[in-house]
Amino acid sequence: MARRGTPEINAGSMADIAFLLLIFFLVATTMDVDTGISRLLPPIPEDQEDVEIDVRERNVLVVLINRDDQLMVGGELMDLPTLKEKTLEFFSNPTNAENLPEMKEVDIIFPPGTSASFPDGNATFLVSQGVISLQNDRSTTYGKYLQVQDVLVAAVNELRDQCALDYFGRHFDDLNPLNFTDAEIIEGIRKIYKMNISEAEPKNIGGN
């Protein structure tokens, strides 16, 4: 007597169907991750009088990009690698030079026990008062503009990295912002080397 029951379904074509779908999704997938340089725009000033903030001349480095994508930094023509050197010097002011930005003493509290240089976590650092003012013409290409932004950010990141290495023995990028202690260190280092890059109100430079 043959036993009654559900006959087995032939699953041989299952693989084919799955393959078909797999190939579809393989082709349709875009794996690009979104990357970019984050910036905070200044709010529109409500009161016109508030705009005029008294900044000393030595504290400002003016970076101009003209319509031919040429770079002028503090009054002289420059290329990108030199701009980076200049920015590093400007923000760190290692020799306390007269023509570089003022350094102001600021108390910064780090989590205790993280650094050998200041075990209790209280440290005093010289913080640069410098601001880089980035100005461009309407005919400057966006590619050049972003390259300059990139160089300025790179310079500040390098200073932060050096600071993290000197005092905490770790790379700045290796600090984990989700870890509470690390987050405080990041916050502190950000106070020492601020990303003081100001984008000027739009205006025309170099004629149109």
Partner: peptide, 29 residues
């Protein structure tokens, strides 16, 4: 933004974003 675009257009967009109070931006690169 395309890298060969002039900053004029970009500045217009940035100004508009400031008026719209959308200040957190990211230059895609």
């Amino acid at each position: 933004i395309d890298k060969n675009i002039n900053m004029g257009k970009v500045t217009d967009v940035k100004q508009a974003l400031r008026y719209a109070n959308a200040l957190k931006i990211n230059y895609s690169a």
